[in-house]
Design a protein around this nucleic acid. Sequence first.
RNA 1: GCCAAAUUAGUUUAAUGGUAAAACAAGGCACUCGUAAUGCUUAGCUGUGAGUUCGAUUCUCGCAUUUGGCACCA
Length: 582
Amino acid sequence: MINIKEDERLSVLNHSCAHLLAQAVKHLYPEAKFWVGPVISEGFYYDIDLGDYKITDEDIPKIEHEMKKIAKDGKRIVRHEISKSEALEMFKDDPYKIDLIERMDEDETVISCYTQGDFTDLCRGPHVETVKELKHFKLLKFSGAYFKGDSNNKMLQRIYGVCFETEEDLNAYLKELEEAQERDHRKIGKNLGIFTSHDLVGKGMPLWLPNGAIIRKELENYIYAKEQKLGYKHVYTPCVGTVDLYKTSGHWDHYKENMFPSMKVDEEEFVLRPMNCPHHMLVYANELHSYRDLPIRIGEFATDFRYEASGAVKGLERVRCMCQNDAHLFVRPDQIGEEFKKVVELILDVYHDFGIKNYKFRLSLRDSEDKEKYFDDDKMWNDAEAKLREVLNDLGIPYYEAIGEAAFYGPKLDVEVKPAVGPEVTLSTCQLDFLLPRRFELSYIDSEGKSQIPVVLHRAIFGTFDRFTAFILEETKGALPLWLSPVQVNIIPVNNNYHLEYCEKIKDSLENYRVELDKREEKLSYKMRESVIRKIPVTLIIGQKEVDDNTVSYRMYGSEETKTVSLSDFQKLLEDKIKNKN
RNA sequence: GCCAAAUUAGUUUAAUGGUAAAACAAGGCACUCGUAAUGCUUAGCUGUGAGUUCGAUUCUCGCAUUUGGCACCA
């Protein structure tokens, strides 16, 4: 998918188109006041205050029509430069523009405006020469958007659109948007019987169907093996904890709003756990540790519950009940770099196995101005942030820094991916934590017999199994690699009367695989069609030829070619595919 | 949570102020078949609670869920 914002020409075009949109809106709704109209990776938008009037579906074609009309007139787009005081005078009736102008630097003496026909907007530019160039655009959607992105502020109305240089480019882009919908894990998940939901269970509470459960189990087995090899110790702990547990950890103060409300049982007050750190702290505290024992790596496939805002819930991607591929690494301060590096390497290893290529590393740091949100210890933060940067630089991994995205207890490295529909989400995460070990009074005995406080790394490679499955379904368009596929081999006999016995024999010989034998009294082509629709990786066609020659004929998903081989060669082929994860 | 829109059979869709149609899927019968749909047949549906109305799936309102954004995302 093309990123408009990263293309210089398209950026100018789309930004100019945002002005065209504003002009058209001004023509149709003279009372309209305008906030900002930036270019984004998907095109452009403009935030507009229409008073009490709400944009409807019928307005969009009208606005588009007006935009075309203005574009046809072909007015030039002219730049003026004015001083701050002139600007304040010029836009004196427009509180939004005044807001923008007042925030501009006093020294920045030149403020620019762009005029096209009867419409002038404050803008840094640049723009295209004339509105005539804005021919191939489309308004895509509209919604409410908080003024300055703050939910305490008034909601403005935002209209999104996109503009291209040619009609072909525009159509190609719109087609891509449509195709993205086909790739949406919610659609695939429904079609392939991966997951469902029910009002009686509740919002954001997915039910994993048998096919989804197989995928999840394979993911669990895969990451469990990796983690065991790396010296992780896996545990099981309860999905609830007492309120006091979360008061001890500090989450009660910082995270209560995102937790399900507490429930009283006898004299104890419980919450459904939103994360597993406190439980794992207590696993660590169960015995006395020597500096020689560290690092200690506690892993768990742990079900957590979070009170996600109702508008945020989405398929398997954002849920209220999820299973984390969680682990907490208890390390000595001198081991931070090495352990953090191992986690990053594990992430890279796993992404390689899944063929995931489009992801970004985000180093999430605190906003040092915000003493409310973050644990207050400047030295701790500075040391931790420096450590993470150092490792990333040593590994030569490209990343970007995000101020104010850290957890309250420490900085973190997140891996972000882009779903088929909607904004980027975090998949993997690795978080450094100097705080929780202190709150739980964790310790180890150093070489001089003194008690020391360990450092904790929180990490989740898949993030949650839910979100990772959603992502993998979109990456593969539901055509999962053999090792993950709920049904791996589908056997279709040409004639049930003559070939079934041989098919049963083949099925028995593939006992290590998930095999289906389609015995239904249906036409071969009918069964083949269904096998393809279900995206089963391998379909076997078994008829008289195969029975006579003691062979199998197979067709791989995505190919129309049929190959015939001996059963042992076929088994070898499956083994190789599983081994190579393709 | 906020701004909107949507909700009809298992699924995808149609229609209507006089309680609903089709395709696929499912059940039954026939066909015994070589790589994306054999034919016939049976059963199955208006999210939920109010209101308006002689009568509501259709109009109005509330609720739930879903969808697109915004905000949130330890």
